[in-house]
Design a protein around this nucleic acid. Sequence first.
DNA 1: TCAAAAGTGTTCGCTATACACCCATGG
DNA 2: CCATGGGTGTATAGCGAACACTTTTGA
Lengths: 237, 237
Amino acid sequence: MNESESSEKDLKYCYRYPHPSVTTDCVIFGFDGTKLKVLLIERGVEPFRGRWAFPGGFMRMDESAEEGARRELEEETGLTGAYIRQFHTFTAPHRDPRERVVTIAFYALVRMQDVKGGDDAADAQWFSLDEVPQLAFDHDQILRRAEQALRQQIHFEPIGFELLPEAFTIKELQNLYEAILDVHFDRRNFYNKMRRLEMLEQLEETANPSRKKEAFLFRFNKSKYDELKQKGFRLEF
Amino acid sequence: MNESESSEKDLKYCYRYPHPSVTTDCVIFGFDGTKLKVLLIERGVEPFRGRWAFPGGFMRMDESAEEGARRELEEETGLTGAYIRQFHTFTAPHRDPRERVVTIAFYALVRMQDVKGGDDAADAQWFSLDEVPQLAFDHDQILRRAEQALRQQIHFEPIGFELLPEAFTIKELQNLYEAILDVHFDRRNFYNKMRRLEMLEQLEETANPSRKKEAFLFRFNKSKYDELKQKGFRLEF
DNA sequence: TCAAAAGTGTTCGCTATACACCCATGG
DNA sequence: CCATGGGTGTATAGCGAACACTTTTGA
């Protein structure tokens, strides 16, 4: 992530007081229809060589942190315009052994199907949330914070739909909410609730996710959601 | 806030790449029994000389952002151990006209009564939220974000109690929640809800906030709240 | 024909909401 | 004695949680 600053020439940016490095890291969440996943990068250099970490890099002087995070996201996934959200800035003095680094952390919600490379990329790989290995730096902490922020935000925004494909079954939607909130819903109550909220549009087609009976496909109705929100309405689960 | 870096000597901290300055700002919320307030500082130097701004300053290399924010908070209010929470980091490239500055912003919840100086301090003053003047830098944005973060967080934590004195009337508690959430509750329903939640302890004394009938004083029962939270419980308003 | 998955409905209890009523105090 | 503010109760509607029934399909 960081350049070594040990070579004493070329140190042309000088200040009266010490300045930390500022980086952006991006926790990229995906959903495979059953489990919540994160995209990790295997580090090729020291420190923490061989360990997995979130994609990230230096914030440039002519871009905001969000622009930097979007740049990182595009480099890893090829995606532009994904849902992205700043959730915490990590500042512990020795979180990077080389120098003082402040990391502005974002989480992104993407459709796994849209990510180029994905599983077969050399150094990038999706991990289920319960199978994430020990990470580099303080990225374990970053992940825990990201999960927490996601859990909280889902009470105020229908962010779950960012993770699903255009068309999805109610079952998948329920799996997603259960994965994010780490709870279990009664299947029938979840159906009823969704129908009452009227945020879903039923499509003509049906899906055959496993076998047995075919399930209807739905689409998220954003205009209906916006309309509901206008009238003072909060998403509850 | 920032030192001018124009004098070319004493620039002894050098890097291969440009580094932004990192500061912490602290939005200090207080409550006077009726209205929500913020503590502002009048700037004595350019830029934005004479404008009001949030207290803040450089993050030191040996402290975390939170430690820096606590240091600023203590300098302005004399308080240690207050409730403090990081809510957003502001990174727009030209938000400070002098140089690139990244500001990690916190909000603090304090009891106005405990703040030394307070209104009579030369350059610090409490402002009601609806009477805040145009602020320096992008601090208007920072304030809006702080309010939003406070409104969201109150759904998950009983942070309102941090703003009240040890003993308070239900009326004051209701005023506070109404001020934060910008809604109106029915007085009687609010009473009933509070009684059902059993998070309040009624004290012997009564208060005489204005005139007419005396009101009971209450105290927040944290252990009862923790007990409720253990059993999976969320604060709803 | 049986088991698994999907779609629909029903019941019960709790809580949010909208109110009514009484008590205490000061002008 | 009445206006104001404080404390308590009550009826109703709506939602969440639990659960029953039916249909479709693959083995």
